[in-house]
Amino acid sequence: MRQKPNAAGLIAALDTPDAARAEGWAAAVAPHVGLVKVGLELFCAAGPGVVGRIARHRPVFLDLKFHDIPNTVAGAVRSVCADRAAAPAMLTLHGGGGAAMIEAARRAAEDTLGAARPAILAVTVLTSFTAAALAETGVAGGPAQQVLRLARLALAAGADGLVCSPQEVSRLRDAFGGAPLLVVPGIRPAGSAAGDQARIATPEETAAMGADWLVVGRPITGADDPAAAAAAIAASLPR
């Protein structure tokens, strides 16, 4: 397992239920990105086999955000790692699932794939959440405080990294240094619509804060030329 780039890398999010479209996007953006993301929409529509097909173009960031009892999550991790040739490079689960769940996920990945296991990433607070939305769920103190709380728990339990919004990257680097992988959605190039994202920043800003991987979806896949859009974002990142 080694998914830490030398400089901020780009992940293209293939968010569509259409497997053929996702494969076309993956082929088009492959020269410009380090990984491609398969999320719930594509995975549920096309089934687990789509991961292997997408992985022919670029390593896969499998963003399924597992959140269940430890035994169930361990079983799910074993399932997505069962085919070594189609195993993801990175895999998400919710930090809110607790230490035992995170520990079980990491053990299952190691038992199945050994050193070739995917990086285990804990999702902290979704980028669509504002302080008010988080408070509605019973969590006080705002996103930044909750992100730090879940980050400490997840890293102590064996997570390799974290998924956070751009607004928390600097705080996490200050708290934990350069070791954890920081994978950051909520990236919007200047002039792009925010959509349903609440805590956002530009690619250049997020890279400068210390992010390892920037996850970009609609600004790439919604462009007239996804390959050119990916190339432009990649070219804007520091090297």
Rank of each mutant, 00 (worst) to 15 (best):
residue 100 A to L: 09
residue 100 A to I: 00
residue 101 M to I: 04
residue 101 M to F: 02
residue 102 I to R: 05
residue 102 I to N: 02
residue 103 E to Q: 15
residue 103 E to P: 06
residue 103 E to L: 01
residue 104 A to I: 07
residue 104 A to T: 10
residue 106 R to E: 00
residue 107 R to S: 13
residue 108 A to Y: 12
residue 109 A to C: 08
residue 109 A to P: 02
residue 109 A to L: 08
residue 110 E to H: 12
residue 111 D to Q: 15
residue 112 T to Q: 15
residue 112 T to K: 14
residue 113 L to P: 14
residue 113 L to Y: 08
residue 114 G to D: 10
residue 114 G to V: 12
residue 114 G to P: 06
residue 114 G to N: 08
residue 116 A to V: 01
residue 117 R to N: 04
residue 117 R to W: 11
residue 117 R to C: 13
residue 119 A to I: 08
residue 120 I to M: 15
residue 120 I to A: 01
residue 120 I to Q: 01
residue 120 I to G: 00
residue 121 L to C: 05
residue 121 L to Q: 08
residue 121 L to D: 12
residue 122 A to F: 03
residue 123 V to W: 00
residue 123 V to C: 06
residue 123 V to K: 13
residue 124 T to D: 06
residue 125 V to P: 00
residue 125 V to C: 04
residue 126 L to D: 04
residue 126 L to R: 04
residue 127 T to N: 07
residue 127 T to D: 11
residue 128 S to I: 02
residue 128 S to H: 04
residue 128 S to P: 00
residue 129 F to M: 15
residue 129 F to W: 10
residue 129 F to H: 13
residue 130 T to I: 03
residue 130 T to L: 02
residue 131 A to T: 08
residue 132 A to N: 03
residue 132 A to C: 00
residue 132 A to M: 02
residue 133 A to V: 00
residue 134 L to N: 10
residue 134 L to C: 14
residue 134 L to Q: 03
residue 134 L to W: 09
residue 134 L to R: 11
residue 134 L to H: 08
residue 135 A to R: 15
residue 135 A to N: 06
residue 135 A to K: 13
residue 136 E to R: 15
residue 136 E to L: 09
residue 136 E to M: 10
residue 137 T to M: 11
residue 137 T to H: 12
residue 138 G to M: 12
residue 138 G to F: 03
residue 138 G to N: 06
residue 139 V to R: 10
residue 140 A to T: 14
residue 141 G to Q: 06
residue 141 G to D: 11
residue 142 G to D: 07
residue 142 G to T: 12
residue 142 G to Q: 07
residue 142 G to E: 07
residue 142 G to R: 10
residue 143 P to F: 07
residue 143 P to I: 09
residue 143 P to D: 02
residue 143 P to T: 15
residue 144 A to K: 10
residue 144 A to T: 09
residue 145 Q to F: 00
residue 145 Q to W: 00
residue 146 Q to C: 13
residue 146 Q to D: 12
residue 146 Q to Y: 00
residue 147 V to C: 01
residue 147 V to R: 01
residue 147 V to M: 06
residue 149 R to Y: 04
residue 150 L to H: 11
residue 150 L to Y: 13
residue 151 A to V: 06
residue 151 A to E: 06
residue 151 A to Y: 02
residue 152 R to Y: 04
residue 152 R to V: 05
residue 153 L to M: 15
residue 154 A to K: 13
residue 155 L to V: 09
residue 155 L to K: 12
residue 155 L to E: 05
residue 155 L to A: 10
residue 155 L to F: 13
residue 156 A to M: 04
residue 157 A to K: 14
residue 157 A to M: 03
residue 158 G to I: 01
residue 158 G to Y: 00
residue 159 A to R: 11
residue 159 A to C: 03
residue 159 A to D: 11
residue 159 A to L: 07
residue 160 D to I: 09
residue 160 D to F: 14
residue 161 G to T: 05
residue 161 G to A: 14
residue 162 L to G: 09
residue 162 L to P: 01
residue 162 L to H: 03
residue 163 V to Q: 02
residue 163 V to H: 02
residue 164 C to I: 10
residue 164 C to N: 07
residue 165 S to Q: 10
residue 165 S to Y: 09
residue 166 P to Y: 13
residue 167 Q to I: 00
residue 167 Q to H: 12
residue 167 Q to C: 03
residue 167 Q to S: 02
residue 167 Q to K: 01
residue 168 E to A: 04
